[in-house]
Design a protein around this nucleic acid. Structure first.
Lengths: 133, 133
DNA sequence: ATTTGTGCAAATCGTTTGCATCTGA
DNA sequence: TCAGATGCAAACGATTTGCACAAAT
């Protein structure tokens, strides 16, 4: 039983062909920031027969299971980050790529107090970058 | 000539009925975070005949002209902020409302250095909040 | 008179869903 | 066996666009 299969099992997800295959593409030890579309194409070139709908479903399930973290950028696309630790991103405006910011490379001083009766759920910092002129 | 008309003129936008009306709704001295849909309904109840497409177009033009600032939150909706100064937001997860964070209430220590050949274009901090349990 | 804006409906994009069919435990 | 997963195509919601008509300079 592969590592991916174990992860799926622990998450209560049936280790089906497509979930295992997609899992293998995603969890190869590196950090990835993928869109559904990207993963779909990647699977296609890897000769893994899977539909786009299933890729979406699978990404959402993986996210629910805590295997991925959803990152929303501009409007449009949603990224899924294989690095599920809390961290921030650079966002390259030219091509829409996300780049991790090393944990600890930034710190936010004196977080503002949330309004009465509210508590902070998540803090996200996004640094948009563009080519120097 | 009203204030809004002057703003439009300065921005090189023809002061048409709908632009003036929408401008009046937006720039009433308070800060607003509006969605196209919201403004459309607001205009409707204010008996301003305008189509949703025109609301979108107008918001985009105002944004280009620097009269508004676009704020993207989750996926889906885009907000337009009448406060065009650089500032951050609380985001209420329960109802999707944006709340300004007073300028100077937060500070980000040691911003990370962008990758080679890149420069920072914009830094945005979004603090998601939820009701205390 | 010319240029620019507006309204409508159709088009687009990313994403989700309904449903019949398959598949893993 | 049989709940749960997959594929497809159709449904979706937010936003944009093409084009005929209307209004501003």
């Amino acid at each position: 039983m592969t590592k991916v299969q174990q992860q799926l099992q622990k998450a209560g997800l049936r280790p089906t062909r497509q979930r295992i295959s997609l899992g293998e593409l995603l969890f190869d030890g590196e950090d990835h920031h993928v869109t559904a579309e990207w993963l779909y194409e990647r699977a296609f070139t890897a000769k893994i027969p899977v539909s786009l709908a299933t890729v979406y479903n699978t990404l959402n399930q993986f996210t629910q299971a805590g295997l991925l973290r959803e990152v929303t950028v501009d409007g449009a696309k949603t990224y899924f980050d294989t690095n599920t630790e809390h961290h921030h991103h650079f966002y390259r405006e030219e091509d829409g790529q996300l780049i991790d910011i090393e944990k600890g490379a930034v710190s936010i001083a004196n977080l503002p107090v949330p309004p009465e009766g509210m508590e902070i759920s998540r803090v996200s910092l996004m640094i948009r970058i563009k080519p120097k002129v």
